[in-house]
Amino acid sequence: MVKFIASILLLAVVAQQAYGDFKLPKARKVTEISKTSNDPTNSVMKELKKQNKNVILTHANAGQEEELKHKLICSLEVPEIPKAWLDMKDACISGMRHQIQEEINASYQYLAMGAYFARDTVNRPGFAEQFFKAAKEEREHGSKLVEYLSMRGQLTDNVSNLINVPTVAKQEWRDGASALEDALELEIKVTKSIRKLIATCESKPYNHYHLVDYLTGVYLEEQLHGQRDLAGKLTTLKKMMSTHGELGEFLFDKNL
C-alpha cells in the first residue's frame, strides 16, 4: 500500500515537472535575451535576426496552431513603381555626398573650437558659444543636404557610409583672433566646395536646375553672409589686439 502511494506521488511529481517544462520555454527565452543583452554588441538585433530566419512562432496553444505555422516577416517587399522621376546624375550625387561630409567635418572643427574656448584657463565664453552655435549650424546644413537627396529619390541604399566620424586638424589656438581666422578659412573652404558642387550639378549635358537654385539661393547666401560676419569680427578684434591685447580680447568676448 505504502509503495503504491509512493509511486503515485512520484508520478505526480514527474507529471508536474513535465507540465512545468511545457510552460517554461517562453519564460526561458526571456531570460536568455536578458542574459545576452549585457553583451554590448547588438544582442537584441541578433536575437531578432535569429527569429526572422528560422523561428516559427512557438506557442503551445493547440487552438492557434494554424496561425503559428507562418514565419515572422520583418522585411516588406519594395513594390515596383515608375523610375523616370529619378533624374539625378551620378557626378552630382557623389558631389552632394562629398559636400555632406564637408559640412560634418566643419561641424566637428567648430565643436573643437567651442571646447577650447570653454576651457577654464582660456575662459572665453562668448567665443565658445559662437563656435558651438556654428557647429550646430554646420550639422544642420549637412542634414538638410541629406534630406534633399532623399527628396530627390536618392539614398535608398548606401546610407551607412554616407557620413564618417571625422577627426579634427586642430584643437588648440593661440588666441581668439587666430581661431576667428581659422573659422573664416573654414568658411572659405566650404564656400569653394559649394561653388564646385554647383558647377558640377549645372554642367552639360544635364542641368540640375532645382538643386543649383537651392545651393545658390540658400547655401551660398548663408556662406557669404557668414563670411562677411566673421571678417568684420576678426577685423574689429585685430584692431584692438594690436594695442590693447588681452583687454581687447576680454571685452570683445563679453560682447559676442
Binding site: Y108, L111, A118, R119, D120, F132, Q171
Partner: peptide, 18 residues
C-alpha cells in the same frame, strides 16, 4: 555632447576629439 563638453571644461577638463 555639447552639454557634456561644457560640463567637463567647466571642471577644468579638456576634450580630445581625436
Amino acid at each position: 555632447s555639447i552639454d557634456l563638453i561644457k560640463k567637463i571644461t567647466s571642471r577644468g577638463g579638456i576634450v580630445d576629439f581625436n
